[in-house]
Design a protein around this nucleic acid. Structure first.
Lengths: 208, 208, 208, 208
DNA sequence: GCGTAACCGAGACGGTACGTCGGGTCTTCCG
DNA sequence: CGGAAGACCCGACGTACCGTCTCGGTTACGC
């Protein structure tokens, strides 16, 4: 009597059976689709395993089998958007960082589902020990990747070889997190160049 | 520091009755004590209105009457520690910022209950719209207060009058948040001066 | 939007709220009604706490608060039918036992919901330790009550004072249980007098 | 008798493969062994197809292929103990019945796994229609067999030829079931002769 | 100086979601 | 083709909290 109620977005008309003793990619996709849809429609607060299972017409155990936590599921939703990951080489460190902060972080998060998901993941990590591990691992991985921007600048001779690449990137990422978690990505996008300049050049006119 | 924490609640030997048509300060204190104790013992995950009410031997409606959300209650717990709030004048902007980041933010959060509470509040704000408002208001207030550090430096002639005080403080606070939310306050405390120097002077040797 | 869907049998049109820190009789009644309806419509196999809660528009915890097991709930449903409990005095032990076996046991169970419930309770007691206790207690109580039939016969001088009343009643009840559990109450009703005669007089013509 | 029960399953060191397009007797035995072990260790409540499959290192479909219900599997476990089935001829009906009730029913069930299994089967039959059929068939078969005791007495001239053998046996079996299902086989064993005497001779001293 | 209004504790209420267990079905792969 | 393995959907389990409500009782205040 309520069979068509959930079929708002799904083309899966019939029941999705097992395909033997191995993971069903159709189920995985349906679950990730449902997770995305739930997040999009009901926000972080409405995101529950129950809701995702209902939406995906999947059993809760099927979800728990493959994703140990809500966080793992969220991160997988997040990763589906992280396809284009190369940082464009603008020829200068400043340009690279402006692009990174503006396009890769704030612009990527702003208004899109990704921002919502990432906020949720960070929030979850504050509560759940296991989620924190997952987030830390993901974060370390991304950091190792993004420091290449500074390494590229070193290779260009733009900055000394002993520049603390991790610290530079930390400042950029920290700023982006802060704005994201305060729900201010929109406003922050307006001042990206100033932020990068402050990080690169410090407080102008500082009397030392 | 932790041993007598529970005794404060337990010395309430008998039932705490109404004292008439006005707020009972004993109840308020008992609830805040209980909230603190629950957070200390069970962490963020175990923090629930039920648990606090049980611990405080208070009715849930009594809590809901005075604190509309978990977040409001948490923030009140947090504020009880924010007694010494003046930023010491070290005579230089660098010294002030090192003190602010090291003592006021990271040092204040590290290992103590305050860090836990603040993480919880930030997490809650990601989920609950109402909590976000409260956090934003609190954050704006603190920011307005902390920018005095930069204003002080302007008065000293250390920095130009048109220095963007808000942006400087944002970078400092962002860094602290980031480390807090990743559970790295301990490590971050080791590199406070470098961080402040990076913010004040930028990347040394940058070829422009 | 789905408010009237379940209201097939219930006159409870609106939401049933708490009436303070004490048991709500309306809820209790609604739950028992629902339990009865579920049993009647879906049988023993379909009887689950979930189903009852759904039907009664009650929360599961409300049910678990007052009935620790499925069995306890079933027994309460059963007891609602056990209002007329006096055993009519037919003037003779044989008449009393025929009435007891035919009307009180087999006739009461046959075709009605009561038989279904009692079968379920007995089945549950085989699986669940706690249910067994409840059933044993109930059974002991009923036995103590029904032995009055034999005591009455003793008072009439029909049987010697040292007659083992418990054993006589055990044989009668055992037979009824057996037929109930085999789903043969219908057929057994036809031979009630013969059974009672066998119990009272033994095998006729036995050469000793 | 119980110590090596588990070893039989464990001596299957490696995976038990198919032996071609026919039933693998090793699997059958392993499954029955596992079913018995599970019942012995975890009782009726812990007896599930899943548990048996886990224990037997067998797939669930393998079990479902050969046993349509839990009940069928239980009955097969039960039958493995029903080796010595002849009723010893004690020379008198009373002796035969005492032996039947005391040794064949109560004594056979008491404390042993068989009682547990039989209780489970009866319980299952209350819930599952299919299980009820199997139990009824089994019960009818046993009844036809056990009435031979009375037929033997008829041949001896102990009882009239028109004695209702089925009714006599029903009373005996009913009593045994009742005690079994109430978990009172231990106590019931003490009063076997009295029960048989009551059935055979009726209430002594009854004034008719 | 007495009603009344607001507070207090307590705890039941209808709910939602949790994470787990088991049911019975299905498919693939191996022997 | 039989048997293992295990994934699949599904439904129920019993628990924890949620936020709301009503209760009985207790003052302090306003009329």
């Amino acid at each position: 009597m309520t069979s068509e109620a959930e079929n708002t977005t799904e083309t899966e008309d019939a029941t999705r059976r097992s395909i033997g003793a191995r993971r069903n990619p159709a189920s995985e996709e349906a679950i990730l689709d449902a997770a995305e849809a739930v997040l999009r429609e009901n926000g972080i607060a409405g995101f529950s395993i129950e809701a995702v299972a209902r939406r995906a017409r999947a059993g809760k155990p099927t979800i728990y089998r493959w994703w140990p936590h809500r966080t793992a599921l969220m991160l997988d939703v997040y990763k589906r958007f992280k396809n284009a990951k190369a940082f464009p080489d603008t020829g200068s460190l400043r340009g690279d960082l402006v692009s990174f902060l503006g396009d890769h972080l704030l612009g990527f998060w702003n208004g899109s589902l990704c921002g919502t998901v990432y906020r949720a993941v960070v929030a979850e990590a504050q509560t759940d020990q296991e989620a924190a591990k997952v987030l830390n691992a993901y974060h370390a991985d991304r950091k190792a990747y993004s420091t290449r921007i500074v390494e590229r600048a070193k290779a260009r001779g733009e900055v000394p070889a002993d520049t603390d690449a991790a610290l530079v990137m930390d400042l950029v990422v920290s700023y982006a997190w802060h704005q994201l978690l305060l729900g201010q990505t929109e406003e922050a996008l307006q001042t990206v160049p100033q932020v990068i300049d402050m990080i690169l050049k410090g407080v102008p006119g500082l009397r030392q």
